[in-house]
Simulated assay, not measured.
Amino acid sequence: MNPIEITPQALDAAERAIPPGQPFYMLNLLRYRAHAQYEDGFDATPCSGREAFNERYRPAFRRLAAGKPLVRIFSVPVLASLVGTQGERWDEAAINEYGDFATFRSIVETEIYRRDVAPHRHAALDDFRLLALAKTM
């Protein structure tokens, strides 16, 4: 299994943890590959992992999420890690806001996402963390 895959078990656990209808944030920690690594048979021009993520994955995700209650808050480079596993590094952090978990799940569980969107994320990222955060305390 791809170590950056969003599993059905993780989706089920998040759905139990996030109250229905509650807006929430997703924190993405991203480490890019130097060169995107697409699976055999996926037709893509060679590029860096950063390019695959920013120029292929993000636009494809936005198209799929169009019309859904999703607001991208920000995406910025990570400058330094002050606390964490020694040697762990992240290239970028992003926070997305969703109207509710059902919206997020309805995007990532589609065949279009699996076929046309996720392959760019898989090719782009060497490592990835995705954390659901409460919008309010």
Rank of each mutant, 00 (worst) to 15 (best):
G84T: 12
R114N: 06
K68Q: 15
P119A: 07
L82P: 02
A134C: 03
L125H: 10
M1E: 08
L79V: 12
R58M: 15
P77R: 07
R105N: 10
M26L: 15
Q86E: 15
D100I: 02
D100N: 15
V71T: 14
P20L: 05
P19E: 10
G84L: 02
R114V: 01
Q86H: 12
L27N: 08
T110C: 03
A60N: 13
A65F: 00
R63S: 12
A66L: 11
R114H: 10
I6R: 05
A134V: 00
I6D: 01
E39I: 02
W90P: 10
Y32Q: 07
L11F: 06
P119V: 06
L82K: 12
T136F: 08
P19S: 09
A10L: 09
I6Q: 10
A80D: 14
Q37Y: 00
H35K: 11
N28E: 01
R121D: 00
R62T: 08
V76D: 06
F128Y: 15
P59D: 10
D12I: 07
L125G: 09
R105E: 13
P77A: 06
T85I: 11
L131P: 00
R105F: 04
V83C: 09
E88Q: 15
T45V: 14
E51T: 14
D127Y: 01
P69C: 08
L125N: 08
T85E: 15
F104I: 04
E88N: 10
A102E: 13
A66W: 04
M1P: 09
R56L: 14
I107W: 02
S106A: 13
S81N: 15
I4K: 09
G41F: 01
Y113A: 04
A80V: 11
R56A: 10
E111V: 13
